[in-house]
Amino acid sequence: MAHEATVNTHRTKWWSGGKSPFNIEYGKVMMWYFLMSDAFTFGAFLISYGTTRFSQNFWPDPNVVFNALPGAGHANLPLVFVSIMTFILIISSVTMVLAVHAGHNRNKADVQKWLIWTIVGGLAFLGCQALEWHHLLTAEHATLIDGKIELISQTTRHNPWGQLIHGPELTTALQHSSSQTLATLVAENHLSAASHGELLQMPKDQLVQLVSNSEIHVRETGPVAFGGFFYGITGFHGFHVFSGVIINIVMLLMTNNNVFENKGHYLMIEKAGLYWHFVDLVWVFVFLCFYLI
């Protein structure tokens, strides 16, 4: 059959009417063109991020920004969590391939089984993304703002991932900071056995001493655009994952209701599969642009 197909492409008059010149059904052609347009949307977002990044003298190192793993506390684990997310998405792509294949064989039970695993994978990915966003939005970092240290998190307005500050600059900044901030910094990093209340009573010099003897990193503010691009693009991708999960749930319900069985074919699953693989494909590039380079 495969050979027949290749021979046919030379023999057949594809454009003479009566047949699909592209030899696929309408819905699939349109899904492909939709995905192509979506690729340009994502491409434009990622390229605008690249343009902004190329226009800056300094850009945060992703290994510094994304170094947390839920449940691992303050441990420095760059790339670990995002690699888990990447593998979840690759595996869910594989289960989708298996669901489509089961559809070709008109094997209803297998279609159901693999669709359920794909949905589970999608939900797991979304859960991971929620944890990641939560961590970035709530974890506070010591940042040099207007000559003193403040505790800020990664938002679309603030970026705590600028260049490290050292030596005399750091000492001056610590002396200008409020006791409140220093006490919080000492307590959060477990630099002293004293409670937060006791730390607030401590002379400021002593707090400054505790912080400057520690391994705490104090940074300048980084490029503000980082947050908008990161949340915007990973959010847009997450929205695609979410709609993919919804589409897969609809496919599962239709399978359960024998819709495809009655039609005599499961070609609809193929189109849902194309969308799902595209979501995985986009992640490959998001992963590259935000986490690897």
């Binding site: 492409t9 010149p21 592209f22 696929i24 052609v29 391939v97 599969g273 693989h277 494909l281 490959v284």
Partner: peptide, 22 residues
Amino acid sequence: TLAKAYYIVSVFMHLGDEIRNF
């Protein structure tokens, strides 16, 4: 990354199995 994209599109999405024009 481009290699990964190639494998996803041509094997998982079966674009490699469609006819050349498409």
